[in-house]
Design a protein around this nucleic acid. Structure first.
Length: 372
DNA sequence: CAATCGTGGAT
DNA sequence: TATCCAAGATT
């Protein structure tokens, strides 16, 4: 029992034991989790944590099952061509994760004999593993006493301890508070319990405080400010940028696919040829960005895609019956090969737009990923 | 530190 | 329809 000097209230500290007791009754069953009391394989923990970065459980589940079936071990994943990993990742977003995933698998397979480091520090040195993921893997896969501070934990802790400092300035305090609470026993369950609590009880809006194991010690609730936490600076508004997408079809019906440079927006993915997506291209002057001279026809309408930090408005140009060599970094591919390649959603949209315009809606529908 | 980097679901 | 934002890392 301590005194909160901000309002003169006496507060009790939240206990790991109360949270773990709640977790034992309400833990979610997820594809990457082991049965209660068992420790999941580090490979599965790592793969799931990378996929779950800024990505919802629902979006990840199918990809996780696919990856595990296709590459059952880290050695299998390391041995795969990077292009196959990128294709398997297509649609999940943040493609740097896929590149780092493969790079990390190679390091673990080739330099660590297929075994992941079992400490936070060791994990942190691997590509794609930052402070959160290192803590999560150390705790969940190796039962190390490590904190895993993600968005859920940030929200829970900012509320329980009533941290009113806006993020990211408040992060150090959140981390210190979390580290102090991690128990010697069951640190992995503690990490997952905290995330489950944030995902199912201590939600951004309308938290279910009445069901919360930490309702009593929650200072945010006592002060009536739960839903205002964590505090965040207002976000800058998203500019609209324009790009030109070039849909080329050869006489045999194959289409032009270009591999994007490894870094930057959609880095390493394949898709139709386009102007720079991060600059702003005037549609009237778009043809200078075409892959080769052809009878380009501007298709009616535009295609929009919202990225985190800007909205992209794409104008699509199409040419059919093209007999031309594919430029460097591009290839002619059948529609089946296009589906196999896996396009990011942002580029699947203009592809579908072109197919619908040239061959009808039914042709566009065939682009959709078939359920496996 | 601030900007960059995807996507889909919920509200 | 617009906004938020989810198991963040990298530069």
């Amino acid at each position: 029992m301590t005194l909160d000097q901000r309002n003169g209230n006496f507060v009790t500290a939240p206990s790991a034991a109360d949270l773990l007791a709640w977790y034992d009754r309400h833990r979610r069953s997820l594809p990457w989790r082991a049965p209660a009391g068992e420790r999941p394989a580090p490979y599965r923990v790592w793969l799931s944590e990378i996929m779950l970065q800024q990505t919802t459980v629902a979006a990840v589940a199918g990809y996780f099952v696919d990856f595990i079936r296709r590459w059952p071990s880290v050695e299998d994943l390391a041995a795969a061509p990077t292009e196959e990993v990128m294709s398997a990742w297509a649609g999940l977003g943040y493609y740097a994760r896929a590149r780092n995933l493969h790079a990390c698998a190679k390091v673990v397979a080739e330099e660590f004999d297929g075994r992941f480091p079992d400490t936070e520090q060791g994990l942190r040195a691997l590509p794609g593993i930052g402070p959160y993921t290192a803590g999560a893997i150390a705790a969940i896969a190796f039962d190390r006493r490590a904190a895993a501070v993600d968005g859920n934990v940030e929200r829970v802790m900012s509320r329980v301890f009533r941290v009113e400092t806006p993020m990211p300035q408040g992060k150090p305090e959140i981390r210190a508070r979390t580290e102090a609470l991690v128990p010697e026993d069951r640190p992995g369950d503690f990490a997952q319990a905290l995330m489950d609590l944030g995902a199912t009880i201590c939600t951004p809006r309308k938290p279910a405080c009445a069901l919360c194991p930490w309702m009593e010690p929650c200072q945010g609730r006592a002060a009536g400010v739960v839903e205002t936490l964590p505090r965040k600076a207002p976000k800058a508004e998203r500019p609209v940028k324009r790009a030109a997408v070039f849909w080329a079809e050869a006489p045999d019906g194959s289409v032009l696919l270009a591999r994007r440079p490894p870094k930057g927006l959609l880095g390493g993915t394949e898709g139709p040829w386009s102007s720079e997506l991060t600059s702003d291209t005037d549609p009237a002057e778009a043809l200078v960005h075409a892959p080769f001279p052809a009878d380009w026809a501007r298709l009616a309408g535009t295609v929009e895609h919202g990225f985190t930090h800007f909205t992209l408005q794409m104008t699509v140009f199409a040419a059919t019956g093209v007999a031309a060599e594919a430029p460097a970094g591009a290839r002619w591919a059948t529609l089946d090969e296009l589906k196999e390649a896996g396009l990011p959603t942002a580029l699947m949209k203009p592809a579908a737009h072109a197919l619908a315009a040239l061959h009808g809606p039914a042709a566009a529908k065939r682009l959709r990923k078939r359920p496996k």
